[in-house]
Structure formats: C-alpha cells, structure tokens
Computed example of a mutant assay.
Amino acid sequence: MMKKRSLVVVVVLLAAQYASAMEIITLSKFQYGKRWAFTKEEMQLMCRPDHALCALNMSTLMQPLNEKAEQQRKAGHVHAQPIEVILLDDPDRPGQKMSIAPFIERAQQLCVDKTTP
C-alpha cells in the first residue's frame, strides 16, 4: 500500500513539474492582420519542455510548428495533425500557404530557459 501511494505521489509531482515547464500564449487574427496564417480566428502557441513548438486550437487540437514537434508527431509520441490543415492560402503567392515564421519566432520566445538567471 505504501509503495503504491509513493508511486502516485512521484507521478503527480512529475506531471506538475512537466505542466509548469510548458508555456502557452493565445494569439488572435486581430493582432496579426494580413500576416495571420491560420484558418481559425484564435490560436495558442506552446513551447514544450523539450523545445518542441506547437500551435493549438480547440477544434483542431495540436499542430507542430518546428521540426522537433513534427518528428514527435510522425513517431506517434504526440497526437497532432500536420500544420497544413489549418494554414490559409497566401493571396500574394498562388499555390503556397501563408508563412508561419512570425508564429515560430513568437513560440520560441516562450522557450526561454527558466533556470537561467
């Protein structure tokens, strides 16, 4: 009984540490105007503790923004869809999607190492 209780405490502490290490920010189409790249009016950007960057939306769940997150998606480590499913077509470049560079840059700002003074 004591071993089970100790295991539960350790798991809860690890989960809390993992969750507190993630940073999330909400962005809207209003903030970005014509640079908005997504089919949704509002998106959340997330930096996971391993610096995998993701876009989140309640209706589409999670999409990877960088190669690390894409590798995790392909390996089945996270439940996510390709970012292309939520990207708008670029009106200035027929046949291409809008750039996600500003959103990757913003998500990277969330990855600042909290242990660095």
Rank of each mutant, 00 (worst) to 15 (best):
M1D: 12
Q72P: 00
R35P: 00
I100F: 03
S59M: 05
Q44I: 01
M43V: 15
M62F: 11
H51Y: 08
F38A: 04
A52L: 06
Q72S: 11
F103P: 00
K4E: 13
M58R: 07
K3E: 14
L65P: 01
N57A: 08
L87R: 15
V12N: 04
V8K: 12
V12D: 02
T39V: 12
D50M: 07
E41Q: 11
Q17L: 15
Q63H: 08
M98T: 03
E70A: 07
P91E: 05
K114H: 07
A15V: 15
Q109I: 04
T26Q: 08
S28V: 01
H51G: 03
K68R: 13
A19Y: 13
Q109M: 12
I83L: 13
Q17Y: 12
D89Y: 02
F38D: 07
K34S: 13
M98A: 03
E42S: 13
E41D: 14
D113R: 03
P91W: 03
E84G: 07
E70D: 13
V12M: 11
Y18I: 10
E42P: 00
Q81G: 06
Y18L: 15
I86F: 01
P91N: 06
P94N: 04
R5P: 03
A69P: 02
Y18G: 00
S20G: 06
S20I: 04
P64T: 07
H51F: 07
N57M: 02
Q81N: 12
I104C: 02
H79K: 12
K114W: 02
H79R: 08
P91G: 07
S59Q: 09
D92H: 10
M46Y: 08
Q81F: 10
Q31T: 04
T115R: 09
F38E: 08
M58W: 01
A37M: 10
H51A: 10
P117D: 12
A107W: 07
K74C: 01
R35M: 13
L53M: 06
D92M: 10
L110R: 04
P64E: 06
N57E: 09
E23M: 10
L65V: 04
R35H: 10
E41A: 10
L88M: 12
L14Q: 03
E70N: 10
G33E: 02
L27M: 15
K114Q: 10
Q31P: 00
L45H: 05
A101N: 03
E23F: 03
H79D: 11
P91Q: 06
R106I: 03
H79I: 05
P82Y: 10
P102C: 05
K34A: 12
V85E: 09
F30D: 14
P49V: 00
W36K: 07
